[in-house]
């Protein structure tokens, strides 16, 4: 009986929070296609404006690929670590806005650099973000993994608000990074 009650509580909180999509697990290349497919159907149902739809996809694609590349990197460097780090993605829909939340582990030693980058991006207005994007596009190098260093700038360009983020230090090796992005008209 307890198990059933817990599931009911989980169901209710998902409903209350207007969650339209959630996934926790390992991020694979095929998963992105599946998530986009589900979101496309949901947005069709909601009658979402195609510009908002595209922006949400852009944000999801970049968030996802940050996670995907990160996991690759992490495994490569930490083969011996016993835990494989899954990631979490939750998309909520509220008052016409889509709220994309992602959560994943990052290496604690990388937190200051990432935090600095996020807070710098948050100081920029839309025009400055466009300039930074152009500069990075024009001069930046693409890694052999296909990473162009543009992901966070692109996410910031599509969001209505500033990037909302948080780090929770688990231990000296790993921390949990959460990112929230609001997309709407």
């Amino acid at each position: 009986m307890n198990a059933d009650n817990n599931l009911y509580q989980l169901y209710q909180s998902i409903e209350l929070e207007n969650v339209i999509l959630s996934y926790k697990g390992e991020f694979t290349s095929e998963l992105l296609t599946a998530l986009i497919h589900i979101l496309e159907a949901k947005m069709e149902e909601l009658g979402t404006d195609f510009r908002v739809r595209k922006r949400v996809f852009n944000v999801i694609i970049e968030c996802f690929q940050n996670l995907y590349h990160h996991i690759d990197f992490y495994d490569f460097r930490n083969e011996k670590l016993e835990v494989r780090k899954p990631a979490l993605i939750i998309v909520k829909y509220k008052d016409g806005d889509f709220i994309v939340n992602t959560g994943n582990y990052v290496m604690t030693k990388d937190v200051p650099k990432l935090e600095k980058r996020l807070s710098f991006i948050n100081t920029l207005n839309k025009n400055e973000l466009r300039e930074l994007y152009l500069e990075q596009l024009n001069k930046g190098k693409i890694s052999s993994q296909g990473n162009a260093g543009l992901g966070l700038i692109e996410i910031a360009r599509k969001t209505k608000e500033k990037l909302i983020y948080n780090f929770v230090k688990k231990d000296s090796k790993i921390s949990f990074f959460s990112l929230k992005v609001v997309v709407g008209n």
């Binding site: 694609i61 690929q65 990473n147 692109e154």
Partner: peptide, 8 residues
């Protein structure tokens, strides 16, 4: 639409 990897 395209991602930032494609953009480069």
């Amino acid at each position: 639409y395209f991602n930032t990897s494609s953009s480069k």
